[in-house]
Each structure stands twice: as structure tokens, then as C-alpha cells.
Design a protein around this nucleic acid. Structure first.
Lengths: 209, 209
DNA sequence: GTCTATACTACGATAGAC
DNA sequence: GTCTATCGTAGTATAGAC
């Protein structure tokens, strides 16, 4: 029995039904194993839930690792370098949010944010916090805005990337498409990139006035 | 037994655990009534779920009704009027998303968008679709951008407003606050408003070039 | 390590008292 | 209309075979 496969199924089930709502029987059955193997490997339902959170954090860290590493060299006063780094990171984020493979883990995270517990702690510590703080630092360097203003702007940048994931069905309805096809995604990415430049330019102007 | 109160509790439970995960026993107990009264009033679990969706649609329609009505008079070529209307509508949306009273229904809607069914149909038809299409029309008038470009821009505007709701815990962590207090919310609203102007200005420039 | 068997609790639906 | 009682099913945990 592959533990990775069991964790993927657990993420899907916990994401869809929550810790209480999902059943270890259902998860075990979907993974083609006995329920008691969950007890053996993870100590029970709660242990499986935390292991699922760790699995998400690890997977996301791997997905963003190269993108984060590539931007590690941006200096304190390299505004253009910071902006280019933001373009790459937000662009990567939009692609991830648009892809189908983030659906299950996104729902898991969305729910965990609704009532944050130990699982959110691990996801934040594992990857999410690192990424968001890095984005905020880059906004700082790109605009010269103070920390708090940069962090608030970061929230609005991330929100644009997350819209296609959190509000997928509504977005598809509004755009009158069946799925997020390549041309639509390309147009959306271009819009978000252009928005980001417009926002950063305005923040630079606000700092200078 | 107040049916409104039962539906509020149902929205909370269904939002947290999903249709399968939530239990009619738990919902009835929280509402201080017998489980069989759900069967009597709504025919069963599925009926209660759809009634909860209708309740959300009705409540949101009431909350946004005056804001939508006030913008109904914006003409076809009134770019400034359209921009002012966008400011008011998005501002209202940010406040709603920041408030605690949208937490339960937001989670219900987020989950329903993950695997849309009859319940999403009703929420979209009842309010959400109307609001998003109106926003897109206003972006059209404000920028002169064609329909598809305006709808895609609308997605990015809505995303900024929804970030504080969908990613609440992460936002609080990044901003290093315990809750979304008035000064923080004010700063965020100002940022989103300013972002919107920057985006719309850029779209106007893109159309003219 | 993975399975079956079992004990106990909680689920949704329904029938019927009032 | 709202309640209690009951049925069949499905849940977690655990013990123990292999």
C-alpha cells in the first residue's frame, strides 16, 4: 500500500467533508486497504488528518521551491529585480491555482483556515508563510512601501491569483466557458500581470508624493 | 421553532462538513428541536440542504439590493459614474467579506463551487450571477474594454475582495494581527480602492493604444 | 504490516403518540 | 406541528490471526 496514495485520498475526503465528516472507512476503502491500517500507520483519524496537512505542505514546498530559490538573490534596492521576481512567483501561483491538481488540497486549506488548528499551523510553517512573507518582502523592495502597506498589497495580489481556485464555478459561469482552457488562462494571466504592474506603479507614486 | 434559525445552523454545519458529513441529528440538536422535524419541513437532508442554499441567496440579495439598485441608473457612456458605482459595490463587498457574519455562508458557497450542484445553481441564479454580471458591465462602461476583457478584470477585482474571507487565517498571520480590526480593514479597503483605479486606468490606456 | 472480527456509538428515515 | 421509539446502516477503535 502506497502511503502517498492514501494521503492523497485522505486530503480529498477531508477537504470535501472535514475532519468529522470524512470517514476512515471510506478513505481506506478508496485506497483499497483496511481501515485498521490507518490506525496502525497514523494512530487514528486525527493522526491521518495531520499527516495529510504535512503532505500538502511538503508537496507545495516542492512545487514552489525552485521559483522561490531563483528569487533569493534579489538585493535590498533592486526594485526591477524584485518586480521581475514578483511576476514569476505570481505567474506560477496563477498557473497552480488554475490547474486541476490543486483542487483537493485547496479545499483542505480553505476549510482549515475557517477554523485554524494544528493542521493550519503546519501548512503555514511548512510553506505558505514562507511564500507570503517572501512576496511581501519583494513588494517592499519593488515599491519602497513600508512593511505593513506591502503586506496588505500582497494580500490583494494573492487574492487575484486565488480567485480562479476559490470561486472556480462562478468564474466559469461569468466567463461563459466550460473549463479554464489555455487561451482563457493566458488572458487571465496577462490581466493579473498587467494589474500587478499598475498596482506597483501606483504604490511607487504614493511613496514619492 | 424558528425556521430561519434552523437554516442558519444548517448553513453552518453543511458549510463545515458538507452534505454528507453534516448530520441532521446534530443540526436539529443545535437548533433545539427533534430531528424528525427536518423530515417534516424539508422532506429530509437533501431538502434541508437546498433550503439552506435558497436562504443564503435570499439573504445576500437583501444585503446587496440597495447597493445594486443605486447603481442601476449608470448610463452607457458614463465612465465616471460607472467607476463610482464600482467603488461603492466593491467597497460594500470588502466590508461584507471582512465581517464575521459571512463566514458560514461563504464556506457553504466555497464548497458548493468545488463540486457545483443544484444548490450552486440557486445561489448563482438568486444573487451571485446578477452581481458579477453587473460588475462586469460597469467595468465595460468604465474602461471601454470589450465584454470578455471586462469579465476577466471583474474576476481579479472580486478576488481582491474575497481574499480576506477565503484566506482569512493566512491574511491575519501575514498582517500579524489577531483579528481584522477597523484600522487594518480601512487600510485594506483603501488599498483595494486604489488598486481598482490603477487597474481601470491601465485598461483605459490599453484600449486607447 | 495487513487483514478479519467485534464492541459500541451515531447516522437517516420512518411510524405513530399527542 | 412536534415529539419519542425503533430499524437498518455505517462510523471509530481495538484485539488478535497470519
Amino acid at each position: 500500500m502506497s502511503q502517498g496514495r492514501l494521503l492523497d485520498i485522505a486530503i480529498r475526503e477531508f477537504g470535501a467533508k472535514g475532519l468529522e465528516g470524512a470517514s476512515t472507512r471510506g478513505i481506506a476503502a478508496a485506497a483499497g486497504t483496511a481501515m485498521s491500517s490507518i490506525t496502525y500507520h497514523y494512530g487514528g483519524k486525527d493522526g491521518l488528518y495531520l499527516a495529510a496537512a504535512d503532505h500538502i505542505a511538503q508537496h507545495m514546498a516542492e512545487e514552489m521551491a525552485d521559483a522561490l530559490a531563483a528569487e533569493a538573490g534579489v538585493g535590498e534596492d533592486d526594485a526591477e529585480g524584485a518586480r521581475a521576481a514578483l511576476h514569476r512567483l505570481i505567474g506560477r501561483l496563477v498557473e497552480k491555482m488554475a490547474g486541476d491538481d490543486t483542487a483537493d488540497s485547496s479545499l483542505f486549506i480553505l476549510r482549515e483556515q475557517y477554523s485554524p488548528g494544528e493542521a493550519f499551523e503546519r501548512i503555514w510553517a511548512g510553506m505558505m508563510g514562507q511564500l507570503m512573507k517572501r512576496l511581501a518582502d519583494l513588494v517592499c523592495v519593488a515599491t519602497g512601501a513600508p512593511g505593513l502597506a506591502a503586506r496588505i498589497a500582497t494580500v490583494t495580489l494573492m487574492g487575484q491569483a486565488m480567485a480562479v481556485r476559490a470561486s472556480r464555478a462562478a468564474v466559469l459561469r461569468l466567463l461563459e466557458v466550460e473549463e479554464l482552457d489555455a487561451p482563457t488562462l493566458h488572458t487571465l494571466k496577462a490581466r493579473i500581470t498587467s494589474n500587478m504592474d499598475a498596482i506597483l506603479d501606483r504604490m511607487v507614486a504614493e511613496e514619492q508624493q
